[in-house]
Structure formats: structure tokens, C-alpha cells
Amino acid sequence: MKSIVKTTAAVAALVLGAGGAVAQDFPVRPINMIVPFNAGGGTDLLLRAFAPHFAEAVGGDAFVSNMAGGSGTVAAAALAGQKPDGYQMGYWSVTVATVQPQIKDIPYGLDSWTPICSVAASPTVLFTQADSPFKTVDDVVAAVKANPGKYIYGSSGPGAITHLTTVAAFSGLGVIDQMKHLPFQGSGPAMQAMAAGTIQFFGDTELLMTRGDFRPLVVFNNERLSSMPDVPTAAEVGIAAPLNELYLWGGLFAPAGLEPAVTQKLSAACEMAINSDGFQKFAADTSTVLNYRNAADFDPFYRAQYAANSALIDAAGL
């Protein structure tokens, strides 16, 4: 009799210890937050600032790990195959979650994830060199039509948010076939090429734009930005939906099939962490635009973005 009790207890302990994801006890071991890029990049620092507040909110331990390569797809593909136990989450950007799976043959897709929460979202801006002759979008369209094949837009790589921004702009304006696309390896070389005059147009978030001497032409947001009230939105210059809004957003994803109670717990912890003083200060220091959505709202948002971005991918010819 005694031995049966003992055995049951031992088995129970084993199951709890190894299998783990019983919601009320969650978490019993550290949570791994995966950055799909190298240590020290923007995404990495955001998550490193986020992790301690998240750990406190969820009442456990959390650490950040990096897995880089293939524009973030290597990490996402690795996580997609993992057990959905809530101990592993990835921070995917709009491109990793919604663009890459549609342009590359990779082992994850729309239904591979349990979206947990969105953390940040910034609208993108199309810009040119501050001393360029182009003051408005109309100037650009007129110049491109007058000299087909002369003007070049840059990007930080095929399928990157910088590429999508320029494609949304010039495809929406109907002049993309009369321009050339020059991809670079990262935003740094592209910005340098802009300063040197090799490329004339580039698109990125407002934060990136403020680093150089650039002139914004159009912003891909639903309304004008308070920081640059004179810059028109894409809809105002005649760019039709779904190309008129484009955000660089990022959020936490767990593998598909996560227990709803655990999802709830993680999503709530995410909200607490975003609202914590420490993380708010980080966002203010780095000009990160926070945008929290809980698991219930993030899921439909993510699916809608996936569908909307397929139009952009077609326009980009990817």
C-alpha cells in the first residue's frame, strides 16, 4: 500500500517536473525568449530590457537567447517545431511572421503560432536626402515619369520592411516599373549610399529617419504623425488600401497549440511588463513606440496583416 502511494507520488513528481505546463504552477523553470537576430541589435536590446520586467510579472525567471540567420527565419523555423509548453517564445517582427513565410520555402506559416501579445509598432516613412530637389510626392512622380529608369530606391535587403515601404509607395503611386531597386546588406550601407547619392529614396521607421539628414515624403499611417504634421499620409497622396498603411511591429509568439490558460497568463504578464516603469523608461530613451495587444486581439491582427502583406509581396515581385 505504502509503496503504491510512493510510486504514485514519484510518477506525479516526474510528470510535473518534466511535462510541466500546468497553468496554476506555471512557470516552474526559466522561460526562454528567443531573439531571431544577433546579440546587440535593436530587437535584442528591446527584449533584454523587457525580459526582467516580464519575469517579475509572470512570477518566474526569464532569459534571452539569440538565434540568427536567414532574416530571422532560422529561429522561427526552429521554434515552430517545438513543444508548445509556454517555456519558449520568440519575438517576431512583421517580416519574420508575415512576410518571410510567404516569399521563401520555409517550414512555418500562418498557423504555426499562438500569438501572445504585441509589444511595439511604428509606422514607416518614405524619405529622400534633405538637399534633394523632391519636396513632395508629386515632384517624385513627375520626375520619375520624365526620366524612366533613372531613379533608384534602396532597401536593406529583399523582403525587409525597408523594401516593403518603398514598394508600397512606388507601387501605390503607379511608377514602380519605371524605377530601379538596389538592395543592400543592412540599413547602414543603404543610408551611406543615400548620403553618397547612389540611391534617391529609402523607407524605414521614423526613428531611423531622424538619424540622418533626410526629408520625409509620405507616412504609412492612418493619420498624420504629431512629430511631423506637414507630411501627408499615404491615403492622402492617393495610395490605395491595402498599401496605404505599413507598420514595423513586433510581438511574442509561442508555438501553435499552447494551453489557453498559459496563453492568458503570459499575455497578462506581457501587459504588466509593458506598463512597468522600467520598460516605459526604456521605450522613452530609445523612442520605441509601444503598442500592446493582448492574445485575443493580437491573433486577428496578425492574421489580417498576413493577408494584407501578400498584396505587397506581389507588388514587390518577390
Binding site: 546579440a39 546587440g40 541589435g41 535593436g42 535584442d44 536590446l45 526604456f282 530613451d285 530609445t286
Partner: peptide, 10 residues
């Protein structure tokens, strides 16, 4: 690149 990112943090 890491140094620049660290600067933004500050």
C-alpha cells in the same frame, strides 16, 4: 553596430 545600439539605450 552593437556599440551604436547600446548608445540608443542610453
Amino acid at each position: 553596430a552593437v556599440m551604436l545600439a547600446t548608445l540608443t539605450l542610453h
